[in-house]
Write a protein that binds this DNA or RNA. Structure first.
Lengths: 248, 248
DNA sequence: TATTTTATCTGATCTAGATCAATCTTTATT
DNA sequence: AATAAAGATTGATCTAGATCAGATAAAATA
């Protein structure tokens, strides 16, 4: 299903809910490591770092040192073209890993901006890499996470290249809904952390089109919009919009 | 520069031109391994496999076993949505690695179709992964290659989300040009392996728009088009089109 | 070589979404 | 609380690119 393409899977909650301190274990790399390996991992990870809303976790051009696991919060990632146009490449929430684009060149290639007060764990890549050499499960997990990012990106390409405004918005809302659900939040009522303009940038639309389309969905009884609060009234109709997007 | 965003770097030619048989060494992973490591790598890689034009190297849904290094030839990668719409996610040429999207789920998520008679080396991922655990340089290289794919995808998102038809075509032509140049082919005269429709799918345009825009470039004296043969007459003007794409 | 089939080009028209513009609402700041 | 700034909505208009349609041209096949 189209709306699944960009979804990141997470480990079931029961596997990570018991941990209270920041660690890879409970977040992005919750794999079957033995206690000893776990300890090595924990030793690498620095204490959770708070990022205030509006602050940058990193910016394009900065030297790459670490990946970041989002402990709590919400980020946007975006590339800025030389002429100043912003393309939001993704929205990221708790349990997700950011910064993988920087591995290739040792410099960050996008900005990561907190859209709400957040906390991240810093994972020094050199050390993670070294440990991964000794811990096959960790190594494999890193490959999987990167691969998942590639798959997600392909889903966005499909969206940008083939879908029309309503389909894009429907896919976007359903994707957010699912990701909130996975994290134990309501899938039918949630707060958008980003502006209409940022949604538009992500979806390849202008903010006016985003606004109009949300209003239209509301008029059709699919959702209820109160500024940034979204209530999904009729998710099936949204899903139908997606499967209806016949190209033939 | 926008047109560089999707470019894959390759190792300088002198590092790989001496090898005649198919190997990672000369292709996608030309890193400073010692002779012993080299041998282990070679042992893993199966003999070059020919893929005829039009044939699939793999298809979405097939179980994942190996990555593929393109030895010679040209491929398109595409995802097909349930309703049958194709989105070309990339064109790949010699020296590039395909199939990384499949690591995340152990199934291929896109089709890889040869656009000319090609040859690939199969890299059984399980074995590569195992060797990577013992050979840090190989491990690091795999991370880098995957990261580069993510960066490339972000470039395509920028193109699809922000650029207009002329800019997209200019970026596309310049990107091909550079990639041919890196491989020792002419950067100013090359044969398109794909149809106008496939170009359109990649760039988020209809084939008619691709055709019209190529004609327009020809009228402006930027390029010469003879069916699939492209001659770049005035590359600077194409580049200017890209830097001119002011969004403010 | 003749004959399909497939790909490309070009023109005419249409439309989804952009752009321009004004108002309204929420949030931040004093 | 008052004011300023930022974000969101809604309407009117415009346009880049889609769609429809027909004409060529190239490539595949008989």
């Amino acid at each position: 299903m189209i709306q699944n393409i960009q979804i990141r899977e997470l480990t079931p909650r029961h596997l990570r809910q018991s941990c209270s301190n920041c660690s890879l274990r409970e977040l992005c790399l919750p794999i079957g490591l033995n206690p000893e390996e776990m300890q090595e991992l924990d030793a690498i990870i620095t204490q959770a770092r708070p990022i205030k809303r509006g602050e940058a976790l990193y910016r394009a051009g900065e030297p790459f040192k670490s990946l970041f696991a989002i402990r709590v919060g919400f980020f946007k990632a975006s590339v800025i073209s030389e002429d100043g146009r912003e393309q939001v490449t993704g929205f990221h929430m708790s349990g997700e890993l950011m910064g993988m684009d920087a591995i290739s060149s040792d410099f960050h290639t996008c900005d990561a901006i907190a859209l709400e007060d957040s906390e991240v764990c810093e994972l020094p890549f050199g050390e993670i890499e070294e440990l991964a050499g000794d811990v096959p499960l960790l190594q494999r997990h890193l490959y999987k996470v990167m691969s998942r990012e590639i798959v997600r990106d392909h889903g966005v390409m499909l969206l940008l290249g083939n879908m029309k405004a309503e389909e894009r918005l429907a896919a976007f809302l359903l994707n957010l809904s699912q990701r909130f659900a996975i994290r134990g939040y309501s899938s039918t009522s949630f707060h958008l952390r980003m502006t209409r303009e940022e949604i538009g940038s992500y979806l390849g639309l202008k903010l006016e089109t985003v606004s109009r389309t949300l209003s239209k969905f509301q008029d059709q009884g699919f959702i209820k919009v109160q500024n940034r609060l979204i209530e999904i009234i009729d998710g099936d109709s949204l899903k139908k919009l997606l499967s209806n997007c016949q190209g033939e």
